[in-house]
Design a protein around this nucleic acid. Structure first.
Lengths: 200, 200
DNA sequence: ATTGAAAAACTAATGTTATTAGGGTAAGAA
DNA sequence: TTCTTACCCTAATAACATTAGTTTTTCAAT
């Protein structure tokens, strides 16, 4: 069968999901594509580039999923939907998800763009809370820390009681939303205090 | 110089912190100890066992740090101190910290004990909120997800604006505490509703 | 249809790492 | 002092990534 980038990405993703991102090898990938290992180098420069393609794919999927999940929603509903979609993707594609974590190198514009698109979409989902400047960054980082932490502990097998994992995630999301609410209210109060007529 | 387990652990930790846990190799470790690679096998069974020792060390440090940080504190103060200590350790020892994440195999009692000791200490720090059953587990998982998520994104270089990282972490901790507070209050309310005289 | 260049496959070789096998040395207990 | 054990060594094997160099396939232009 024809070997192209799409198929490489697909098989690499499947392998990474099965054996872990670190367990992904050029040998296994070549075998899955039914060619010899060195032949892979006609298509990709090396294992790093394979992982880079996985990262691009994962970031795009996450971003599109986030858009689909949050469209037409706002406030807590949007954030909840974002959380659930994000976690579901990470849970179903642990290897691909892991590839999205490293920070792209400065010179890799394509990767950086994909990464920042996801960031923008997450920020958009938080819009309803009206957080400004540093607060918005804090919220964004909090959101990412929360999903990433939960998803990677889940993937590491740290959470035994299968039944309650969804419940725990939902609980944590609500905790976050409550805190977010409070932060938004305080920010609002400050603004009114400092600029009562909202003319700033 | 004499080679023993303590020195192996020490050098392995240093290497893992410098080059990442995955970058830790038997070759580098042997070189750091000034012996040939195969000689390492007189002391440890392989790279897996080296990582296991790192995990044991990391779990112990985290637990002792948590105890030291929270002693004499309760409620939000205890949880805040736990968060800060946990993150500080992960930040200063990214390689060792990464070793503490995988779930120990069923048969490895020592590792499992170290792991569950840390869990118990975290639970103890949350005691003040009086959460019962599933709620307590949710809170515990939430706490771990937050620190782990934040610490590993931080280690991955995901958070650029250096200045504000501490601020973001503090913000996230406060969000969690606010949510915890609310959850505790609701749990209390339910208890009173269902068993007004508290005789259950 | 034929040819000629580019793409993509192959074999062979190099270097790195983990690990095992087997042999020598030095230190400490009998 | 001798013997045993612990610890070091060299040599060898196997898995992997990658490079070099060659052949085959493909496909577009004649």
């Amino acid at each position: 069968m024809k070997v192209d980038l799409a198929r490489i990405r697909h098989e690499a993703g499947a392998l990474a999901n099965r054996h872990g991102l670190d367990g992904l090898s050029m040998s296994d990938l070549a075998a899955a594509l039914d060619i010899r290992t060195p032949s892979l180098y006609s298509h990709v420069a090396g294992v790093e580039e394979v992982k880079r393609h996985l990262a691009l794919y994962g970031l795009t999927e996450l971003e599109q999923g986030a858009v689909r999940a949050t469209v037409g929603k706002s406030g807590p509903d949007a954030v909840r939907a974002l959380f659930n979609g994000y976690r579901a993707f990470a849970y179903r594609n642990p290897g691909v998800y892991a590839a999205t974590i490293p920070t792209p190198p400065r010179e890799d514009t394509e990767w950086r763009v994909a990464s920042s698109r996801l960031t923008q979409t997450c920020l958009a989902a938080l819009q309803g809370y009206g957080l400004k400047g540093a607060e918005a960054i804090h919220a964004l980082r909090g959101l990412r820390s929360l999903v990433h932490g939960f998803a990677s502990l889940e993937a590491a097998g740290a959470m035994h009681h299968t039944v309650k994992r969804d419940e725990s995630f939902a609980w944590l999301v609500e905790v976050f939303l409550a805190g977010l609410q409070k932060a938004a209210a305080q920010a609002q109060a400050h603004k009114i205090t400092n600029d009562p007529k909202g003319t700033a």
